[in-house]
Write a protein that binds this DNA or RNA. Sequence first.
DNA 1: TTGATTTGTTGGAACGTTCCATTTAATAGC
DNA 2: GCTATTAAATGGAACGTTCCAACAAATCAA
Lengths: 347, 347
Amino acid sequence: MASRPKATILDIAREAGVSKSTVSLVLQGSGLIRPETALKVRKAIEDVGYVYNRGAANLRKAHSNVIGMVINDLTNPFFAEMAVGMERVFQSAGIVPFIANTAENPVRQEEVLKSLMEQGVAGLIVSPARGTTPGAFRRIEMAGLPIVFTMRRLPESRIPVIAPDNHRGAWLATAHLIGKGHRRLAFFGGSSDLVVYHERLGGFREACEGLGIAKRDTLVVEGETSRKGGIACLETALAMAEPPTAALCFNDAVAFGVMLALRKRGLEPGADFAVVGFDDVIEAQHYMPALTSVAVDSAGLGERAAHVMLKMIQSRTTRAEDHIGAVNLVVRDSCGPDRRAGMGDAA
Amino acid sequence: MASRPKATILDIAREAGVSKSTVSLVLQGSGLIRPETALKVRKAIEDVGYVYNRGAANLRKAHSNVIGMVINDLTNPFFAEMAVGMERVFQSAGIVPFIANTAENPVRQEEVLKSLMEQGVAGLIVSPARGTTPGAFRRIEMAGLPIVFTMRRLPESRIPVIAPDNHRGAWLATAHLIGKGHRRLAFFGGSSDLVVYHERLGGFREACEGLGIAKRDTLVVEGETSRKGGIACLETALAMAEPPTAALCFNDAVAFGVMLALRKRGLEPGADFAVVGFDDVIEAQHYMPALTSVAVDSAGLGERAAHVMLKMIQSRTTRAEDHIGAVNLVVRDSCGPDRRAGMGDAA
DNA sequence: TTGATTTGTTGGAACGTTCCATTTAATAGC
DNA sequence: GCTATTAAATGGAACGTTCCAACAAATCAA
């Protein structure tokens, strides 16, 4: 029960009959040590049940092999996919990502960032929580710690961002709806304190304008970026005098909510009301009807972010280029049968 | 660009005109320091952009405020929910959970555990990867580090487990199917190298036996615990001479796959073939048809695990009681309309 | 043989904290 | 004015590692 005092490098040295320096060298896989000596040491390590103290080590060499990954909503499968993409590239670089969830809470985020920094991470990949204040990352920048944002950017920040082409994605989706003959369009979900929101809404607006939809035939309903939010948005929209017949949703979760609410009202998603999602999470293709959505290649973005981070660490810089990932509209069944059958506007 | 050398406690001491010990005391929120002095120190900390070095601190006091959470599949929303539950309780205890994903890969798991230990975590909550060898946690036990398993247990291990009542859950679900009049039943997905698998399969078997289903009218198909696995299971089953008419699936992902495959064959889940899932992830209620599933209260299990861990850390023990969480069958539409309408066997 | 080089190994200082024992300053009791 | 007590601040050793400079033993060149 009472765990005896932890073994240190000195205990191993004694056990193996060498000096602590030799043990240290073995631990680092130095080629300077005679193979038989190394073997002896490794055996001692095994026997004693030694565990390396990275904290102590970092005290001297000051660069760790862990990077922090701060995510605003672990529950959204989209982020889980992205995390998996990152892990792939980090693993092969011998660095270990620790994930922390902020649950969209800036205070929690502050704590988590602090903790990660204290732990001595080599870098930070962050998808900032909603309502993050502009100054929230000042400390980190001051410390010269490499940091990149994914998915979301902060209003006026010089921190590099890896994100999909939100504007274009929204434009494509909106054009698709208009091409289907819809004339009264809505944009559902999200809130204006997110830069992404403005990007997506911007694409929506531009498509409407460019393709001849009057501003007054256009409805924007802010809301939570969840199923619940989607349900609320639809209720609001259908309560209008001249309700829209189609909606571009801030993300897939909102779209699922909208479809759910439609069903509950006896309306058939696709036939009675067209809906497009954003992100194209795996579930999208499995829903009934399958959801037309803007695919953003989450795993790819994750990999990209990881690569950028690796570069920054290597070149010990804190700057990097933004990276805007290609998007593409995946047409499925949630916008009704294609009236212009065969024209196929999927990319 | 070139970040100047990190500030230490001594830099702050100089800046504030006090000794390093005083700074240390302030950092720990000791009441021994005169408020004005503390203020001066705190100001210096802010000015200099100091970041606390927890590694150095742990060198002396040897108990950190981080615990590691090792999860076998972050992509499964079930685990994300559980993680969220844990975070809730840890947050209020001032301890920070770092999550690491093993992607069901024992080698990866080994690395991740090693890394976490080296980092000096105070404890470990693990959902072991499939194929974990019995000895995988020996090192950790030797080190006297508190560890608890969630969801999965290892064959002969004395490590405490927090998990749902798999046997009973499977029994309930199977009884439900039999009650619906099904006489040829299948158990889909999962693999026999998992203890959970045997627990759930055991519940299935016991219900069949107890409720008069002959063993030869029973089909067991192992498979991946994913949508893909579910699809494969159904294909296999329908290729049999006398295929089953209902299936209990290892988890919801498998069930979703089965429903998908049914559709693809022109069969209607619920009407033509009954399916029950396990875990009751949020998606279950949103599918068409909504999936009947065994609810396990993932967030609750997460909270429970976190509490147990907290206790273990406080009482510096490495033992704890297992905890088997209550389950309950949530009846929805994936098993067809209830022929005995009104009897309602949902809990 | 001597000195130079190579191959393995080693002691000691340093890293940034905590904590104990101690000192200094302020206050109280008489 | 003196000691006793309390409050506030401090110096130094310790924690477990790395890394440099140094050393010992073996090999080589002459």
